[in-house]
């Protein structure tokens, strides 16, 4: 099972986990990214490259399936305006082996950060805005998987 969704709307984490559990592998790992508040942040705006995003996330998923013995994976990435507390991204993996489930989940989120065409803009109280800068350590982490 490979499920990839790039969408504006929210998603149901429990339903995603249940679908992965139903594959019967015995091990499911997941990561959920949530908009972090504080510092006067009122919203994040996620822009993406519609013609490329789905295919690129699909390639990242294929890479994970080639590297680990997975029964299934699910990747959901939202775009548009998201307020603090809103879910941004979900990665779930299912395998017969916990190491494969955990490692592939970490790999997927690291690669999404540096290899998927999304850009975040922050909106603050008072009207200030700013584009989030890519962090060198994110690129280093993704490269660390070889």
């Amino acid at each position: 099972m490979k499920r990839v969704a790039v969408q504006a709307g929210d998603f149901d984490v429990a339903a995603e986990l249940v679908a992965l559990e139903a594959l019967g592998g015995g091990g499911v790992a997941s990561f959920t990214g949530v908009v972090r508040g504080g510092g006067g942040l009122i919203a994040l705006e996620l822009e993406h490259y519609p013609a490329m995003t789905q295919a690129q996330v699909d390639r990242i998923c294929d890479e994970a399936m080639a590297r680990w013995p997975l029964l299934g994976l699910s990747v959901i990435h939202r775009f548009g305006r998201l307020e603090p507390g809103a879910r941004i991204v979900f990665v779930g993996t299912a395998s017969r082996h916990r190491t494969a489930a955990l490692e592939s989940c970490a790999f997927l989120i690291d690669w999404l950060k540096s290899e998927a065409p999304f850009w975040k803009k922050e909106h603050f109280e008072g009207g200030a805005t700013g584009w989030v800068e890519a962090r060198v350590e994110d690129e280093t982490k993704a490269k660390g998987w070889g």
Partner: peptide, 12 residues
């Protein structure tokens, strides 16, 4: 056919 130019990505 298509060239895209952008800053380093910041998804995830």
């Amino acid at each position: 056919r298509e060239l895209a130019l952008f800053p380093p990505v910041t998804g995830g």
